[in-house]
Each structure stands twice: as structure tokens, then as C-alpha cells.
Write a protein that binds this DNA or RNA. Structure first.
Lengths: 250, 250
DNA sequence: CGTTTATTTGAGACAACTCAAGTTGCGTGG
DNA sequence: CCACGCAACTTGAGTTGTCTCAAATAAACG
């Protein structure tokens, strides 16, 4: 175990059973019905799903599930931002992504969780028992194709990240990261210029394979150059054009 | 466009229609029947598939398909090694992986190819028309779940690569790369210590997000330290234990 | 056998890392 | 409400590993 900043294994003080778990009545009023995984399902399928779904809320910094544990539930995020990460043999932590509204967490195809997840801010999610899900999956071909599509989308996002990590210099990496982040929040008003959550710089560092210091200095430079402005609870984008330029620079 | 080594867009002199395309009679004698995508299918499904499948062979350095083109066919690799890569706006090339026997190339879920592929050595593959595949996919739930599983496996591999690229130093990167490569060849005799193809160092560099020079120097060091030995047509692994140590070092 | 492509080596610059110390923000308890 | 402690962020100075540039082999290919 090194003394480096990034690799410290944060021991979760309390890894938190879901705080509340109530039955989801209908998906009808859920804004996610046309977004992400759920949008792939027919109304009939959605109503079958909602039979077994439960709604849970999780406080900031609490863990939702852990890598290596048996996969009992799978989740769809309703609100809030989650940090997804893997822990490696050498103690290094690799943040593999951030999940937001509409994202499907875990796959019923894995017996064990491929990664850990915890909440960056107050989070609300639907969860389904993996067993139920597998049942649907086997009975209804529509389910499996919806799942295939969802996984496929995740694969494409993973490839995006691979392209990102393939970058050698810090500025394009951070710039691309910021832009992808913004994009994922801009699904409603296409011209949003604000990401309304605070992501710890340590997480960005572990996501991009850099040190906290470099992330910090890069963000500082962006701020100084008036490309972004970092507020208490989020980031504002001031000059998208120039940020895109940096992102695409070699 | 920069002058850097890695980013040169290799213009394929001849992007090669499949050299031969003959009907695949049966999957019965194919060694892949228990490996990769095909192993997920029932015999009945396999025989349906083989109705429309065609076998093609491709010479080294020829292109099989290109990123951005319409996805007409999808492929399963029988023999040989392929290089899969994306071309980015700034001219940078990101190698997203290497495909070998049993691997499924492209997804019927995308209308356009997500990446380009070309042959590193003589390659033999089965191909199916995407349309046919979609037909099966819609008619037979078994197909879609097989596809979901295949894509899921690819996703897990993509995450492996993300973890790899998250590494900061060159030695662990190259070591991990070599080990993953070996593993993918060791599915028959578990204790194989040889990878029987020559992969251009430029491809390794573009895969790992490093320069050719650094890849070369790192491989040279490994050779000098008798961890591996590089032959004309492949790599021999001399000290797996120590290589694993390096791969897991911070 | 000449031409092209890939690998190897060197020297130097520079960006990112390391280490160390300070600062800020925030929640907790007095 | 303030003092305290912890965690996150910031800044600086120095080191080092990787990149850059350039050039010399060595292989591959027609």
C-alpha cells in the first residue's frame, strides 16, 4: 500500500441498509418512463416490473452495494448522482463512472457485483430483486432485448471512457470529462450549462487516472481562464466552445 | 494533425472485399461451438444460424470493416487476430482491443460500426447479415439473451481495459496488457506461456495510451530482465510470477 | 535488392507526480 | 454560537518518468 492520496480505501462508517423501501405503485408518473432503461419497455412490461419494484432513498456518502457481494438487487437511478468504482489488488481505486437518472446499475447477468456504488448526494432509486428480473428475462423476450440494449449503451459509454483515458495530457482529459458530465445532465434542456452537483476532486482523479493535485491545478486553470466556474454545489460552464477545443486537442 | 508517431492515419491501400465467401455447412465440427458467443446458443439455434452464415478469410493488414459505415454484417472470429480501433476527431487513433477466436464483432444493435477492424495475421471469420440476425433476435428470445450475455462479457472486458488505462506508470500497464493477452490465448492449455502473433508496437502504444518509444523501452527492459522473450512471430513468457508482480504494482 | 515500414537508441524538455504544508469548508459537541 | 477536528481543497518546490525530436538500425515486401 502506497502513501498516495488516491488509493486510500475509504472505510464506509455505516454501509447502510436502504433507509426506506416502499412499493412503487405505477411508473406512469415517473419522468424516467421515456428515459434510459425503462424507456425500452412497453407499458405492459413496465406495469409488471412495477409490481415487484421498491423505491429506496440513500443518504450522501452511504454505500448502496459493494463489489464482490452477491447480486441480490439491481437498480434504476431516479435522482441523484452515484459514484461507481472498483477496488484493485494493489489498493488502487478505479472510479469507473458516475450514474444518474435513468441509469441501470448492475446486471442480472452477473452473480456478483462487478463494482461498488455509493451516493454522492441524496439518491433515490428503484430496485428489483435479481431473481424476479431473471424470471421476466426468461419469460419475456422483450425484456432480454431491452436489457441487451441497455448493456450495449453502457458498453458504448465504456468505450468513450477508454478513448478519454487514452489521452496523454491532463487538460484534454479533464475537459472531456467535464463535457461528458454536462451532456449527461443536459437531456432535458439541451443548452444547459450547469452541472448541479459537487464531485470530489479525488473521484475525478481516480476516474481519469491522475493525481488530485493535477486535477486541481487543471480545474484552477480552467477557472482562471473563465472556461468554467466552480460553485459550492456544482459547476457552471462559461465557454463551451473553448472547452471543446481543449478537449479535442492532442 | 500533429507529427506524432501514434496518430498517423494509415491509409489502407486496398480495403478488400472478403477474399472468399462460402457457405458454412455445419457448426458441428467448429471448435468454437463451446467457446465465446456460439457456445451460448442451442444446437437448434446454431443450425438456424449456420443457414445464413458465410465463411470469409482475410489477409493480413486488410481491413474487414470501417468505423462509421453502415453495419451490414456482424462477425464471429474463427482464427487469427484482429485489431479494433476508433479514429478520433483530432486524428488520434485509439485501439480499443484485439479480437480472437470466439469473439463477436460489432453488434446488431448499432446501425453503424462503432469501430474499425483489420487483420493482424491471416484471419478467418463467420459472418451473418445484420438483418437476418435481427430477425432471429426478434423471433427467438434465446438469441437475444445470448446476445445480451455476449455484450455483457464485452462490457466486462472494456472495464478491465479501463482499469488498465487508469494506471499511471508504464511498466504495470505493459505487464497487465501482456498478461491479458496471454490469458486470452490460454483457453485451451491453461498453462500456455506463448502468444503466437506479432503485434506491432504502435498498436500496443495506441491501445495503452503511450508512445511507441515508451512501449519499446518497457518491452526491452522486460526482455533484459528475462521476463519475456520476443520472437519473430510472438512472445514467450519466461517469468509469469514476476510479471504479475509488476502488473499489480502501483 | 532497393524501398518502405517497424524497431531501437539517445539526448533533452517538460508535464505530471511526489512530498509537504497550508487553507478552506463543514459538521459536531461544548 | 463558537471551538474543534476532520476531510477536501489549494499551493509550492523539487523530482522523475514519459514524451518529443532526431537519427540509426533492422525487418518486411515486392
Amino acid at each position: 500500500m502506497t502513501s498516495s492520496h488516491q488509493t486510500s480505501v475509504r472505510t464506509q462508517k455505516d454501509s447502510a441498509k436502504p433507509l426506506s423501501a416502499e412499493k412503487v405503485r405505477v411508473c406512469d408518473y415517473c419522468e424516467l418512463r421515456n428515459r434510459g432503461f425503462c424507456s425500452r419497455l412497453t407499458d405492459a412490461q413496465k406495469s409488471i416490473l412495477s409490481e415487484t419494484a421498491r423505491l429506496v432513498t440513500v443518504e450522501p456518502h452511504k454505500s448502496i452495494f459493494r463489489q464482490g457481494d452477491e447480486t441480490e438487487n439491481i437498480y434504476v437511478v431516479r435522482n441523484g448522482l452515484l459514484r461507481l468504482y472498483q477496488q484493485h489488488l494493489n489498493g488502487r481505486r478505479q472510479v469507473i463512472g458516475f450514474a444518474k437518472h435513468g441509469d441501470l446499475l448492475l446486471s442480472p447477468l452477473s452473480e456478483r457485483n462487478e463494482y461498488s456504488a455509493d451516493a454522492l448526494d441524496p439518491v433515490c432509486l428503484c430496485h428489483f430483486r435479481r431473481q424476479d428480473f431473471i424470471g421476466f428475462f426468461q419469460r419475456d423476450p422483450g425484456f432480454s432485448s431491452a436489457l441487451a440494449i441497455a448493456i450495449h449503451e453502457e458498453l458504448i459509454r465504456a468505450r468513450q471512457q477508454i478513448a478519454l483515458l487514452g489521452q496523454k495530457r491532463a487538460e484534454p482529459k479533464v475537459a472531456q470529462f467535464l463535457l461528458v458530465l454536462l451532456e449527461s445532465y443536459a437531456w432535458r434542456n439541451a443548452e444547459a450549462t450547469r452541472v448541479p452537483v459537487r464531485i470530489p476532486q479525488a473521484d475525478i482523479a481516480d476516474f481519469l487516472g491522475m493525481t488530485v493535485e493535477t486535477v486541481n491545478r487543471t480545474l484552477a486553470r480552467f477557472t482562471r481562464d473563465a472556461l468554467i466556474s466552480v460553485a459550492k454545489r456544482g459547476i457552471d460552464f462559461l465557454d463551451l466552445r473553448r472547452l471543446r477545443q481543449i478537449a479535442e486537442s492532442t
